[in-house]
């Protein structure tokens, strides 16, 4: 019975990794669509929301069932707790991708396309954090998430600077208000996604070492 359970954990982990990459790719693709002003691609991202939700529900259900059936302890329990957390964070991250894809439509008809301030840079950092958290989970190795808190600080300060920059644009020219409001929101979504990467890293640390830690 125990071996069946441990096989199930391995399979679950693979599927959680796939879901984490699915959510991450929704976020990443939404940013590409935004920069390319590709409405078709943005619609594609929005369409993935259903699959994302299905993956979330079915993985969550599997984890609850495994806990109920096997009453795991020690590392097994920590792995399931961490997996649950990653499933939830990945769903949030994917949905932020969908939200950004929604905004693309509003930003496409402005003639100031291409001016995204430091949003693309911010998204690169955040996607990198998600990738490294996912890798750490997959390989149960903390190397890639060691500097998570520093990276999150950079993301936070980018959000603040984007906000201030947008304020000045909006004051100079009220016609930029719609666009800049979207920028502020997008930077907020990215910052939240970075927070999710940090939360994931905390739980991965717990899974691997058994010790709780707080990032930042």
């Amino acid at each position: 019975m125990a071996d069946k359970f441990h096989d199930e954990i391995l399979n679950l982990k693979c599927d959680v990794v796939n879901m984490a990459r699915f959510g991450r790719t929704m976020l990443n693709d939404s940013m590409i669509a935004l920069q390319l002003q590709d409405l078709e691609m943005a619609r594609g991202v929005k369409g993935r929301k259903v699959t994302l939700q299905e993956q979330h529900d079915s993985l969550e259900d599997r984890i609850f069932t495994m806990i109920a059936l096997y009453q795991p302890v020690a590392r097994d329990l920590r792995t399931l707790v961490c997996s649950l957390m990653i499933v939830q964070s990945s769903e949030r991250i994917g949905r932020y991708g969908k939200d950004i894809a929604n905004a693309t439509r509003h930003l496409a008809d402005t003639d100031t396309t291409g001016n995204f301030i430091s949003i693309p840079h911010m998204s690169e950092l955040v996607v990198g954090m998600i990738d490294d958290a996912t890798l750490a989970y997959e390989q149960e190795n903390l190397n890639t998430i060691e500097d998570m808190s520093k990276r999150d600080d950079v993301v936070d300060s980018l959000r603040t600077s984007i906000f201030r920059e947008c304020l000045t644009y909006m004051m100079e020219d009220p016609r930029t208000i719609t666009r800049c409001t979207h920028y502020v929101m997008i930077s907020r979504f990215l910052e939240r996604s970075g927070d999710h990467a940090c939360k994931m890293a905390e739980k991965i640390h717990y899974m691997v070492t058994g010790e709780r830690t707080e990032i930042k």
Binding site: M1, A2, F5, H6, P72, V73, A74, R75, D76, L77, R78, T209, G210, E211
Partner: peptide, 18 residues
């Protein structure tokens, strides 16, 4: 002991990897 045992032996026993 049940959350984060120090010894691998304990871990293996309580998680049924014995």
């Amino acid at each position: 002991i049940f959350e984060a045992p120090r010894e691998t032996l304990t871990e293996n026993y309580i998680t049924g990897r014995f």
